[in-house]
Amino acid sequence: MKALLALLLLLALPALAVEPNERLADPALEARARALSRGLRCLVCRNESIDESHADLAHDVRVLLRERLSAGDSDTAAIRFITDRYGDFVLLDPPLKTSTMVLWMAPPALLVVAFGGVLLAARRRRAPPAPLTAEEQARLATLLKGQE
C-alpha cells in the first residue's frame, strides 16, 4: 500500500528535491539544513534522503527541519524532533546501539580476524613440520616394511 502511495506521489509531483521557496535566507543555517537533510531518509521512498526526494512528505520534513533550525535548535535537537515522531528508521546513518552493534563492529572485527587468520596461517606454514605421532610412526614403519 505504501509503495502504491509512494508511486502515486511520485507520479503526481515531478518536482526535484529541494525547492527554491523552501530555502532559508541565512546561508549558514541553510547549509546546516542541507547537511542534516542528506542524512534523513525520505519516509515514503525507497532509500532516498529527503534532500533528494520529490515526495510530499520529504518536502514537509525539509520545511519542518528548517523551522526547527530557524527557531534556534541545535542539529541534534532538530534531528531529535524528527526521530521522536518517526523513530531511528529515518536516520540513514544508523546510531550505535545494541541492535546495530553487529553492523558497526563487524567491519573492523572482520579485518582483525582476517589479518589474524593470515598471520596464523603464515606462521604455521613456516614452522617446521610437527614430529610424527606414535601412530604415524607405526604406519610409516609398516609402509617401509611393505616396500622392502
Partner: peptide, 12 residues
C-alpha cells in the same frame, strides 16, 4: 498543513 499528522508520525 499536515503538522498534526507529523506529530503523530503519520506516513501517509
Amino acid at each position: 498543513d499536515g503538522r498534526t499528522g507529523f506529530d503523530f508520525g503519520v506516513y501517509g
